[in-house]
Design a protein around this nucleic acid. Sequence first.
DNA 1: ATCGATGCAAACCTTTTGCATGCAG
DNA 2: CTGCATGCAAAAGGTTTGCATCGAT
Lengths: 146, 146
Amino acid sequence: MKEILESLKNKLSTHNFKLTSQREDILKILIKNKNRHFSAESLFAEVKKINPDVGLATIYRNLELFCKLGITHQLDFDSSHKYYELDLEGTHHHHLICVNCNRIIEFNDDALEEFEKELEKSYDFKIADHKIKFFGLCSECKGLKD
Amino acid sequence: MKEILESLKNKLSTHNFKLTSQREDILKILIKNKNRHFSAESLFAEVKKINPDVGLATIYRNLELFCKLGITHQLDFDSSHKYYELDLEGTHHHHLICVNCNRIIEFNDDALEEFEKELEKSYDFKIADHKIKFFGLCSECKGLKD
DNA sequence: ATCGATGCAAACCTTTTGCATGCAG
DNA sequence: CTGCATGCAAAAGGTTTGCATCGAT
């Protein structure tokens, strides 16, 4: 935990960005909630609990900065809000989204690689990244709908 | 072409929605550009060429209606605009998006079914739908980057 | 004739930006 | 000290809504 924060702070100073208390507070919240998907607004609410004086614009500006530095990345579950997620190594994953309770389950994509290779051949396309979401009913909601 | 329009108009009247000239104009544009992805604004521009008096609010209201009726569906390529696409049977597909020239190539997903079945087993999740996008370089841009 | 559909403009919501002040380096 | 970062408020951009009018049934 501590060492994640240190390495991210390090990434900031390496790129000559200042280590402000706001940036540290935002990083702390992101790290503490590794697998949560934050909107700017919801992150703002969390950071305010630590530092009531933070401004929403600071959240937006730093989320943009963090995405550029690869500290976070942007998700697009819906097209009226932007969502962000901490981008730790070895956590590349995708989402199963329950359409009933909105729970989001993450999964890895090892099995996808083969499919990608075939796609690249068929369409003469070099794949660099992907975004994959499955929608349906999670184990609990499946039961309820029977 | 003609018969697609008729069947969609039929879907409207079946559900007791009125066949206004605006709705017909919107459908005509969508059908004529089957494989284009429209923002409300770009669809508005096209419809205006046929009917200069149409209002943007009408475009929004009807795109929402058409999505409810399954005539169109919403895409989320980026989270600051909503994009829409005609939803014809047998055209379920996904997208290869070139990060260099923004070209969008569509592909079918037959090979994906097996992967889905495994996911359902592993996570005890009933998959109903999916959204899949691959990002990379298309055949032309691949060459340029060599 | 009725009530849903439309056009316009205003409202809304999320995100971005300008500017004066604050603070890390 | 210097210039980047911040907070605030205003602006921007996309979408939705209220209201009077229009027009399909």
